[in-house]
Design a protein around this nucleic acid. Structure first.
Length: 328
DNA sequence: CTAAACTTGGAAGGTTACTC
DNA sequence: GAGTAACCTTCCAAGTTTAG
């Protein structure tokens, strides 16, 4: 996957006045969790650490964590991932030392974090958010046009043509984007279904997965994992974002390092697949503005529903196969 | 009405290829 | 080789929209 990247340069990010946290935020959003509220993530994570520290040694960590409800468990995992991937963050959270007592630490009543300041925490989360949403916006922007290239049959044109900058005709209003967005269980070739999707008589929610996720855009009801998350479109977009836009369809001529190289990324992560799927899904729709809370696009639910499956213990084998497939 | 979220254009950084 | 044009890609901040 990453073999095509340019070997000439190594991690070199802007050494200007930009906070390195922004830089971490960019990569974190793409590869660990795209739509997180860092403020809540940090606050709750610290609180939870306090809770964990209070429990007796014998039922520490893993077992204790399993008492948390499912969504909290994910949040805690993401929190730990954040501490791990942002060098010096844990220390920075503890940074301080004057008499101003952190309200969060007080609540948690852990001496460990007593010196951490709310102000510091809010600054950190703002910088991380800036990075994550900045990267997301950039990706949304640059995928918008490129996706059209990939869904156009080789040597042909889309009929009718789709504008690269205006999205109103996309989604279920167009034969091609409609077919790709059509939920796997429904039949786009059925004109009645098509009409209902177009008129929003059938509402598609985020947990109904679209056909473009499947290899050859074919869904097998007998074997739902068959080809799932292995479509050419996903691979194109993945390359576009992580290696470089030009690495998708030719030998990369790019001179500047792509995102994977900049961040020292050598393996595909599961959330990054979900992230790319969410980006493609959005670019195919007719919605002009990406919004995580938009209930029509329902991007957040889509993203989370993909993560749900990736984290489901019952799907472990299939998910392992998938990650091997991506890293081939 | 304020603050956060998004879009967008272009600056910045980096390489190759061409010319003298 | 130095100079620089052309190109590719990431990064940023100003402006605009939306949510609280």
């Amino acid at each position: 996957m990453f073999s095509g990247s340019n070997p000439a340069t190594d991690a070199h990010y802007n050494s200007s006045a930009t906070d390195p946290l922004v830089h971490y935020g960019r990569h974190f959003g793409r590869t660990v969790h795209a739509l997180c509220n860092f403020q809540a993530l940090l606050t709750n994570g610290i609180l939870r650490m306090g809770e964990l520290a209070d429990t007796p040694e014998e039922n520490f960590t893993a077992e204790r964590v399993s008492y948390f409800p499912a969504e909290e468990r994910r949040e805690h995992r993401v929190f730990q991932e954040l501490l791990k991937s942002v060098a010096g963050l844990e220390e920075r959270l503890m940074h301080g030392g004057d008499d101003e007592v952190d309200a969060v630490a007080e609540l948690a009543s852990i001496p460990f974090f007593c010196v951490c300041k709310v102000i510091c925490l809010s600054h950190i989360s703002r910088q991380l958010t800036k990075g994550a949403s900045g990267a997301r916006g950039d990706d949304t922007k640059s995928l918008k046009g490129s996706v059209l290239n990939w869904i156009t049959p080789k040597g042909q044109n889309l009929i009718p043509p789709l504008a690269r900058n205006i999205k109103v005709d996309h989604g279920f209003h167009h034969e091609r984007t409609g077919a790709l967005l059509c939920p796997a269980g429904l039949d786009w070739s059925n004109s009645e279904t098509k009409a209902k999707l177009k008129s929003s008589e059938i509402i598609v929610t985020g947990d109904q997965w679209p056909l473009f996720l499947y290899a050859d855009y074919h869904y097998d009801p007998e074997d739902p994992w068959n080809g799932l998350f292995r479509s050419a479109l996903l691979v194109c977009a993945y390359r576009h974002v992580f290696t470089s836009p030009s690495s998708v369809d030719r030998e990369p001529k790019a001179t500047r390092s792509g995102n994977a190289r900049i961040h020292g990324m050598t393996r595909v992560t599961l959330p990054s697949i979900a992230y790319i799927a969410m980006q493609i899904r959005f670019s195919l729709t007719s919605s002009p503005v990406f919004s995580r809370t938009d209930t029509v696009t329902d991007s957040e639910r889509f993203y989370n529903s993909v993560l749900d499956v990736f984290e489901d213990p019952d799907e472990k084998q299939e998910v392992n196969d998938l990650i091997i497939w991506w890293n081939r």
